[in-house]
Amino acid sequence: MFLVKCPWCGWRDQTEFSYGGEAHIARPLEPGQISDQEWGDYIYTRTNTKGIHAERWVHTQACGRWFNALRHTVTDVMWDSYKMGEDAPTPPKDWDGLTCCDDHKKLAEGAKK
């Protein structure tokens, strides 16, 4: 029930996408060297953030490409998406989770005028 920004196709309805869970979880480089506890954490433990959440999406119904995005998990508003391998953008500290990055920019410009 929200819009997702595909870095290639732009803002589209969420139903065009599939969710891929929390982003930036790196597979341990040497699984044989770590404890069961650490391996279990890697597979199962999640941040499950209430607030700004970095997550993976794939544009299943269109370009089929994977990307990362920041979304506010209370309002379900996506701030912005970014390509795999890129650093996450930083929403403003006072972001209320109600506007996406593009609207936020427009509002800021409107306020200046």
């Binding site: 029930m1 969420q14 599939s18 969710y19 499950n48 209430k50 959440h53 997550e55 979304r71 998990t73 209370v74 309002t75 379900d76």
Partner: peptide, 8 residues
């Protein structure tokens, strides 16, 4: 299918 606390 996505995590959320929105109760909606």
């Amino acid at each position: 299918p996505y995590i959320s606390y929105s109760q909606r």
